[in-house]
Computed example of a mutant assay.
Amino acid sequence: MIPATLPVPLEFRLPEAWSPANLDQVDTPGVAFAAVHPEPDNGFAANITIDGEYRLDEATLTEIAEESVLRMRELDGSLVVLHRKEAGSGEAPALTQTLRFSTVTGGVHRDLVQIQVYLVMLDVHDASKRAVIRLALTAAANQIDSVLGDFQDFVSTVRPDSGSK
């Protein structure tokens, strides 16, 4: 599988001990970047993914987040939205949502939690071009608390790539 590309280049810093994943070996359609935690929980490795797209419509971040929920419910009808909150500012809106769902991976039933952060980035040359970036942490329900701080640290480092490297 060919990894997706992001509508805007990003720079970020992975938390210590996390490693970039080989997207050719992971079934992650639409994902441009993935990283995995070094200590799997009962065989499931917590992971961070990044994807994004240009949105030419006027959909709000809440509507975009709900689209994600509906897509995921097609795979697991028991998916529950535990939390959703708008954040950021008028110039840089953001939204977070926490989802709980179940899946079978490696022949094992797993209860998972996914925390999604949606960020809006406007094209500096054309403000009508709105990119929506989704950062997601997926972990076993009993591991989420131990990796949440890493994810929060990661999110705080994500910004448009200035190209100054």
Rank of each mutant, 00 (worst) to 15 (best):
M1P: 10
T138E: 05
P7V: 07
Q143F: 07
P29E: 00
I115E: 11
A65D: 08
L137S: 00
F101H: 10
H109K: 13
T98M: 10
V31K: 02
V108D: 12
T62R: 13
G30T: 02
V158K: 02
K129T: 07
E16R: 15
L135W: 00
L14I: 01
R55M: 10
G149A: 14
P160F: 06
N47S: 09
A139Y: 00
A65C: 09
P40W: 01
E11P: 05
V113W: 04
G77H: 14
H109F: 10
R134L: 11
I115C: 10
L70W: 07
E39R: 12
W18M: 09
P38S: 05
L99H: 03
V132E: 05
L75W: 04
V108L: 09
E53W: 06
M72Y: 08
P38F: 09
V124D: 14
A92N: 11
E39K: 13
I144Y: 09
A59Q: 14
Q143A: 13
R159A: 12
M1N: 10
L23S: 00
P29W: 00
R130V: 12
A141Y: 08
R73M: 12
P93Q: 04
V80N: 09
I2Q: 03
K165W: 14
P9D: 11
T5R: 10
D27P: 01
P93A: 06
A127L: 14
